[in-house]
Simulated scan of single mutants.
Amino acid sequence: MTQNSQETVIGRITSVFGVKGWLKVYSYTDPKEGILDYANWVLSLDGKRIPAKLEEGRRQGRAIVVRLKGIADRELASTYCGAEIRVPVTELPELPEGEYYWHQLLELEVFTVEGDCLGRVDHLIETGSNDVLVVQSTKASIDQRERLIPYLPGQVVQEVSLPEQKLTVDWDPEF
């Protein structure tokens, strides 16, 4: 999931829904319906950026379905399947102090409380119980291992410094 520095990915179009141009989306927002709070989307598909306007959307069973402006039939809708849904980061609500969006944690260098460099946050995984940082090694890291570190602020994650692009963890490098 690559990021443009001014945009973040909030979901993905998965399939068509019905015959009138509706689409099913997989939302990365929490709650899932939060994706419907953003009207101006940028769809990213096959290296192309396509501006899109959300006309309406709703929960349909366990899925979210949407209708985008100018898409009124199943055939046209199917051409958007697989597209990432992006919004400008300036449209995201401000979080309370100590909380972060996933896109803010990407590329942060990860250090142990002892000062050992473990690598850089490549991406995160949602597991249900807690999110997990996937840390890839760098030239500066103590070894060339990939690490899965639970994102547990106050327990494992001791400090996040966005200005320094640094995340400090209480984590055994042997794990």
Rank of each mutant, 00 (worst) to 15 (best):
T29C: 13
T29F: 10
E33W: 06
G34F: 01
G47D: 02
A140N: 12
E164H: 12
R86V: 06
D73W: 06
Y80P: 00
L108Q: 04
E174M: 02
R145G: 03
P163A: 11
E164K: 15
A83P: 05
K20I: 07
E99V: 09
K53Q: 13
V132I: 15
V160E: 00
Q155C: 00
H123V: 05
D172R: 07
D116M: 09
G61V: 13
V113H: 01
T14P: 04
V9M: 08
Y80R: 06
S161Y: 01
D37H: 09
V157M: 01
G98C: 01
E91L: 13
E146F: 11
V65T: 12
S5Y: 10
Q144E: 09
Q6N: 15
L68I: 07
R49N: 12
G61P: 10
W22L: 07
K53P: 00
P150M: 11
K48H: 04
E91H: 11
E91R: 15
G61I: 12
D73R: 14
R86T: 13
W102V: 15
A63T: 07
I71K: 04
P51R: 11
K53T: 14
T14F: 03
S161H: 09
T2H: 01
T168C: 02
Q155S: 12
C117K: 15
K24S: 07
V42H: 00
T112E: 00
G154C: 02
I50M: 10
L124W: 06
Y151N: 08
V25G: 03
L95Q: 13
N130G: 08
T90A: 14
V169T: 02
D170C: 04
F175D: 03
G47M: 04
S78W: 06
E146S: 11
L167D: 05
E55G: 05
G21K: 04
K69P: 00
